[in-house]
Amino acid sequence: MSLVTTSASVWRDIRRPQRLIERSAMVYRRNWIIILSGLFEPMLFLLSIRVGLSQLVGDVEVSGRRIAYDEFVAPGLLAAAAMNGAIFDSTMNIFHKWKASKLYDALLTTPLTAADIAVGEIGWAVLRGTIYATAFLITMAAMGMVESAWVVMAVPVAALIGFTFASLGMAATTFMRSWADFEYVPAATLPLFLFSATFYPVSAYGDWSWVVNLSPLYHGVELVRAANLGVWEAALLAHVAVLVVLGVAGTTVAARRIEKLLLS
């Protein structure tokens, strides 16, 4: 087995999940307007905070710097948008493809594997989340809420947040029995959205601030906020690690469940 054939087969292995992304691109080529609609919610939030709330609240102190409230909230909203986009794509959409249209049954009769399906679908959700984050970032810049050029790092961070939540969402979806079970999804994401130091600094929790560490979104918010301020410190690596570990775990569970339930 030469190096050339080995790398060729590795290349093929990496390419297979891309076919799922290709499929999603094909589906949304006609429905690109649906993709755009996902942008509106975070943009409206941003606008309302900019117009009204920011003046009321005044400045906020972060990492020893005083910044306007809208500049404080914007990174939180960006992180939450990445989470919501990924969750939407990886729960309802995937459940439909799994149970109603039997897409994955059909895919498994081709050379694609359960892992290819999991990675491919999560990959699409990440891509979609990244598009949202980029558009959001451009809006932030246009409204003058950007503190540092490092803010471009918010795009890969948003991709990472997308990966974590798409993986967790897909893993959770493999346990859903019917559409009714999806009621639990907002029950999980809404508290994360509200309490992950999105709208106020973690210091507001006082002695209980450690609890926020349990929220995956909090780790994402901290990273985006650091990117916006251009403050880089080693502690951020811990946030990255949490998101990576959860993402890998979710992807693994999703792939195993597909294998167990569809390849029986």
């Binding site: 076919r19 499929r23 589906v27 249209s101 059909a106 081709t110 050379p111």
Partner: peptide, 18 residues
């Protein structure tokens, strides 16, 4: 198990890609 989100010819095209 046809792909209901795609047209007839797209069903064949994407399947080829798999």
């Amino acid at each position: 198990q046809l792909d209901n989100e795609l047209t007839v010819v797209e069903n064949l095209l994407i399947y080829a890609r798999y």
